[in-house]
Each structure stands twice: as C-alpha cells, then as structure tokens.
C-alpha cells in the first residue's frame, strides 16, 4: 500500500516576507461551496442559522470568522469555512466539497494593501474595503477571492492549480513595494 501524506498547496513556497509584509499559508479546513436554488435563499439562511448559528452573508461580506464562517463567494454563492455542511442544506442548495481546491494565503503588514493594489483593481482604501468585506476579483489575472480580515490583514484564495503563480505574483508585487521605499 502506498503511504499517502496530505500536502498543503503552498507548503514548499511560503512563508515569505518583504517590506514588513508577511505572507503565510492558511489551512481553512473544510471548504464547502453552497449555491441556493431559485427562491430558496431565505430557507437556506434559516437552515444555516439553525445548524451553524450563522446567517447567509450579504453580498461582499462574511459572517463568522475565517476559522469558522461563511464567506460570500459570488452571485448566489457562499463558501462555508471550517464546518461540516450539516442541517439539510442539500434541500435548498447545491452543495460541493472544495476543501482541496483552493490555495489560501494570509497577507499581513502595513503595506499589504499597497502590494495587493499592484495586482487587483478592487478599491482597497480602508474606508471603502473595510474589515470583513470580501470581493471576488482578479489578482494578477487569476480568479481570486479577497477578504480583509483585520486592520492590515487580508485573506486571498485562488484555485489550487495557481499556487505557484500566486506566490510568484505576490513576490513581484512585494519587490515593487520594497523598491518604492517607505512613504
């Protein structure tokens, strides 16, 4: 029998640090994409609250935390993080396990937004993109999910197949920030 060992998508590539910005891999645990059927949004939100104590997030927001929460993930889509999809969600929505499908990093530091702004068109100014705000966007031409989880902390998710590209793009962005010096 082969002895299979789980490997995180980025374990040989991170952490990295430049310009006081730290990039590390995050293990979000179970990831479940939930897509409500037509007109079943309210029933789904009720089922989630009964089973998990968390309601369906508004567009561009997350409920709970990145340890255990629900991340808005697009039109009529949200990602359950760190919880089993219990409570009969299948009655109201299409439910798909994507735990192994995403490479996830946390980017932290005063100049983190400056580095991300080199890669994404989202308006990251603190008064616009606030803590617990999330966006589906592109990051260096990769489809990504971008969430502000703290004052200077961001969570970035890309498809696992883009793990190397993500680290490459972030590395170049951080080099660019470093080259500009402090403000």
């Amino acid at each position: 029998m082969a002895d299979l060992k789980p490997r995180m998508p980025l374990e040989s590539l991170l952490p990295m640090e430049a310009s006081g910005v730290r990039v590390r891999e995050v293990d979000l645990g179970a990831l479940t994409l939930v897509m409500p059927y037509r007109e079943r949004d309210a029933a789904l939100s009720d089922a989630l609250e009964a089973a998990q104590g968390l309601r369906w997030p508004e567009p561009g927001r997350m409920t709970g935390t990145t340890g255990r929460g629900i991340l808005w993930f697009g039109r009529a889509q949200a990602m359950l993080i760190g919880m089993a999809p219990e409570g009969g969600l299948e009655d109201h929505a299409a439910v798909a396990d994507q735990s192994d499908g995403w490479a996830v990093v946390e980017i932290e530091g005063d100049r983190a937004a400056e580095a991300l702004a080199r890669l994404t068109p989202v308006d990251l100014r603190p008064g616009v993109f606030e803590i617990r705000h999330t966006a589906r966007t592109e990051l260096g031409h990769m489809a990504a999910s971008l969430t502000r989880t703290g004052k200077a902390t961001y969570l970035v998710m890309v498809f696992r197949a883009f793990a190397h590209t993500l680290v490459h793009e972030l590395g170049i962005a951080l080099q660019g920030v470093a080259a500009r010096g402090g403000r």
Binding site: G74, R75, T137
Partner: peptide, 8 residues
C-alpha cells in the same frame, strides 16, 4: 458578464 467578479 462580471466574469472575474460575482459571475452575474
């Protein structure tokens, strides 16, 4: 089509 955004 909001291709790399929400998908609407």
């Amino acid at each position: 089509f909001h291709e790399s955004g929400c998908g609407a």
